[in-house]
Amino acid sequence: MTQSLERILERNVALMAQCSVAYQSWQHEPILDFATDERIGIELGWQATPTKSLFLSFKNGEYALLLTHRDARLDSKKTKALMGKRPSIATDEEMIAQLGCVPGAVCPFGMPSSIPLIVDEVLFSFEELMYTPGPPEYTFAFEANCLSRLLSALPNPVLILSTS
């Protein structure tokens, strides 16, 4: 059963409050591709580091979500070493069914608790991070030093993907 985009947004707002994380929020035209993201980022003067969420599937029917820098690519070898199985990018249909998100706007927080969240350790090195909190017409930004606090409040298994 998928959750609504509004519910995902509410869960993200609640997570920020629960963890006492200050964040900025913008409402804008839907962002579903890099070109729109770049254009709106320039228009709104975004300074935070953009993230992306890749929904991964495994042959055994399990899933995981990789939270990484927007320009990073999936490192299948490192992900396999971490998860013990080879990942592939899930189909849009799988992602919609499991998460309720819109393709191009996958939210890393508020997923079903059975889905592990893999976090690229490079994200901890930035000053501020940006992500889509569900609906593609919203963007949130928060200080990267709060990422650990947010991750510890999630019911999901959290794994850190080493960049070395």
Rank of each mutant, 00 (worst) to 15 (best):
M111K: 14
A144D: 06
L129C: 04
S4K: 12
G134H: 02
A72K: 05
L150K: 03
V119H: 06
L56C: 13
T91K: 01
E29G: 02
V106W: 11
L147A: 12
P133L: 11
E143L: 12
Q98L: 14
L154A: 00
L123K: 11
R39S: 14
K77L: 12
L151I: 08
S88K: 12
N145H: 14
P116K: 12
F34R: 01
T79W: 00
F34D: 13
L44I: 10
L151Y: 14
A17M: 07
F140I: 02
M83K: 07
Y23E: 09
L99F: 12
F109P: 01
D37W: 11
C101G: 10
L151A: 13
M16F: 12
Q18P: 00
F34C: 03
S25V: 02
I96D: 13
R7M: 09
A17F: 03
L66K: 05
E127Y: 03
T79F: 00
V21N: 08
E121K: 12
L82I: 08
Q18F: 05
A81N: 06
I8H: 02
M16C: 10
D120W: 00
K85H: 04
E38Q: 15
V21W: 05
D120N: 13
S57P: 00
S162H: 03
L159M: 12
S162W: 00
S20C: 03
A144K: 14
A22C: 07
L161N: 10
L150F: 03
I40W: 02
A35F: 11
I118K: 02
L5H: 05
G104K: 00
F34H: 11
I96K: 03
E62N: 15
P112Y: 10
S20E: 10
D120S: 05
A14I: 04
S20G: 05
C101S: 15
G45Q: 09
S114M: 02
S76C: 11
K78H: 09
P133K: 04
Q47R: 04
E94R: 00
M83F: 00
R70H: 15
G134C: 05
L159K: 09
P135K: 14
Y131L: 02
V122Q: 08
L65S: 06
L15A: 14
D92Y: 01
L159V: 00
L82Q: 06
L123G: 10
A144Y: 07
L65A: 08
L9F: 13
A48E: 13
D37L: 14
A22P: 01
S25E: 06
T91Y: 08
N60S: 10
F126E: 14
L161Q: 10
G100V: 09
E143T: 06
A81S: 07
A17G: 08
P157Y: 01
V158D: 03
